[in-house]
């Protein structure tokens, strides 16, 4: 098994520490480059200044499973198993938290999870009304009534099949 040398400590914005295997942490590009910059230093603590602990935990959970599944299914079937896990992983995350998670993942530069979270948000808003989506993203409607009527006229057919959440 991995020795303590292969561990790194990730520190959340609240100062909470997470001990993580290097194999897991190396999926976070920012952690990788920080560690490369201070190579040779015994200090293996990386501060993720703007990332809250709950998001650090989610990201670690994702990549821990990612690494494990990859090891276990080297011969094939990894993608299928990962998809299964991703589904389960996303189910336990509150829809509002997805926004915070995408910010965190973007900051940590973790491509695989970034795609997963972006797709999850896209799926969540897909069949929602404009009003819901505005509220979800905190968007202020800056169209005048005339402009809005004009757009509605142009895309009349596009309003079918909407469900309000």
């Amino acid at each position: 098994m991995a020795s303590t040398d292969d561990k790194v400590i990730l520190k959340s914005s609240e100062g909470e520490c997470f001990e993580v295997d290097m194999a897991v942490a190396s999926h976070l590009q920012i952690v990788k480059s920080v560690l490369e910059d201070c190579e040779g230093s015994s200090d293996k603590v990386v501060s993720l200044f703007i990332v809250e602990a709950k998001y650090v935990a989610m990201i670690i959970e994702y990549y821990k499973n990612y690494v494990e599944l990859k090891e276990k299914h080297e011969e094939g079937g990894f993608e299928e198993k990962l998809k299964e896990f991703e589904k389960q992983f996303l189910e336990q995350i509150d829809k509002k938290e997805l926004k915070g998670l995408v910010m965190a993942v973007n900051y940590l530069n973790a491509p695989a999870l970034f795609d997963v979270v972006c797709t999850a948000i896209a799926k969540h808003i897909e069949n929602k009304s404009v009003e819901y989506v505005r509220e979800y993203f905190g968007i202020v409607n800056d169209f005048t009534a005339e402009e809005e009527a004009q757009i509605r006229e142009e895309h009349r057919w596009a309003y079918d099949g909407v469900n309000d959440d």
Binding site: R134, I139, D142, F143, H155
Partner: peptide, 10 residues
């Protein structure tokens, strides 16, 4: 769906 979201904001 994107066509509908055009009217979310400018």
């Amino acid at each position: 769906t994107l066509r509908r979201f055009k009217k979310n904001c400018k």
